[in-house]
């Protein structure tokens, strides 16, 4: 129900921060989620901002209110002011490809999407989120007291379910190693069916879905639905972390949700800011080359955040195991879902 408009804009701030002397401009077009979506638009924009802070470049963004805006927004950036245009989200895949074909000299990069075959002037940025979620699943399996974990998603789409896949597989791997029977409610990697709120904006659903999982015995829940997860955190805050802990997604949620920082066992990081900054740097130093950037544990495009307030509660041997698994995933000796 994006009734009229759901997009916000912090452009006053942008306009103020631009310094006239910059030679390089990075432009971003958001998808319909808007720049403050507590998700990939915001994280990608953080990458641009980091680059602005680090190298003094110009950055600007345009928000898309509807899908029909993608093309229009890209068109209005094509005037030649932008050295690199960053688009966000798989929904913009077609529009970006079209603009890239029409403007072969313009550098593009798209977050969360990969072209096959690749396009010479577009860098696709994708993330092996399941690698990080695998670690989270293993950690959660090691920390649960009830032997039940839970997860739910926003909508049944790959960028969401890849988290859930990794989480479930991580827990299974723990069972394999330790002979335990930790189960994960809310996602079945085989049938690709599970628990979904059907939206990315009802925080109240986040609370209700976490409650549902808690009622069935889960004491650690991974919500993969953007801001909806904040509702789950509110429940954990009320029930107490003895009863329920939350695993954050995308960013380190102890930072993005500081008021409820104590409920996050850890967060599954998807470092879009880091890959975006890499792309900008490449465009600046001339090493830009179309293709694919895959964020992995190895290149720290994905990762596991710290344990926050549970730093002392996570047993040292579990931490050691996680380190070993991280290494195993990186060198390929541990196959996720295999």
């Amino acid at each position: 129900m994006t009734f009229l408009s759901k997009i916000g804009l912090a452009a006053a701030l942008v306009a103020g921060s631009v310094t006239a002397a910059s030679a390089f401009t990075a432009c971003q077009v958001t998808d319909t989620g808007g720049i403050d979506d507590a998700g990939f638009n915001q994280t990608a924009w953080k990458g641009v901002q980091d680059a602005m802070a680090a190298t003094g470049i110009d950055g600007r963004f345009l928000e898309s209110q509807a899908e029909s805006d993608y093309e229009a927004n890209l068109n209005s950036l094509l005037g030649g002011d932008c050295d690199v245009i960053i688009t966000v989200g798989f929904l913009m895949g077609d529009a970006t490809a079209k603009a890239a074909a029409a403007n072969p000299e313009q550098k593009f990069s798209i977050v969360d999407f990969a072209y096959d075959p690749t396009i010479p002037n577009v860098v696709g940025q994708v993330y092996a989120t399941d690698q990080a979620a695998f670690l989270a699943g293993y950690l959660a399996a090691g920390m649960t007291k009830t032997g039940v974990l839970g997860t739910f998603g926003g909508i049944n789409i790959p960028p969401v379910t890849v988290f859930m896949d990794g989480f479930v597989h991580g827990a299974s791997y723990y069972n394999e190693k330790h002979g335990t029977e930790v189960s994960v409610l809310g996602w079945n990697p085989e049938s690709k069916e599970g628990l979904f709120t059907g939206n990315f904006d009802s925080l109240d659903d986040g609370r209700a879905f976490a409650q549902n999982l808690y009622d069935e015995g889960a004491d650690i829940v991974l919500p993969v639905a953007g801001p909806v997860g904040l509702g789950s955190a509110a429940l954990a805050d009320e029930l107490g972390t003895e009863a329920l802990k939350i695993v954050g997604v995308d960013a380190d949620q102890t930072q993005t949700d500081p008021q409820k920082a104590h409920v996050y066992l850890t967060s599954v990081l998807k470092r879009m800011d880091s890959t975006v900054q890499q792309v900008i740097n490449a465009a600046m130093d001339g090493s830009f080359e179309g293709g694919l950037v895959v964020g992995t544990l190895e290149n720290e495009g994905v990762g596991l955040a710290g344990f926050g307030s549970f730093e002392d509660e996570v047993p040292a041997e579990l931490k050691a195991e996680l380190d070993a698994i991280r290494a195993g995933v990186i060198d390929g000796s541990i196959k996720i879902g295999g």
């Binding site: 408009s5 804009l9 452009a11 345009l62």
Partner: peptide
Amino acid sequence: GRQMQVDAGVSIDLIGIIQA
């Protein structure tokens, strides 16, 4: 409204309010 966003940096949500 799209132009307003580009030129003046005013949120396009305002258009919704004006329409209502």
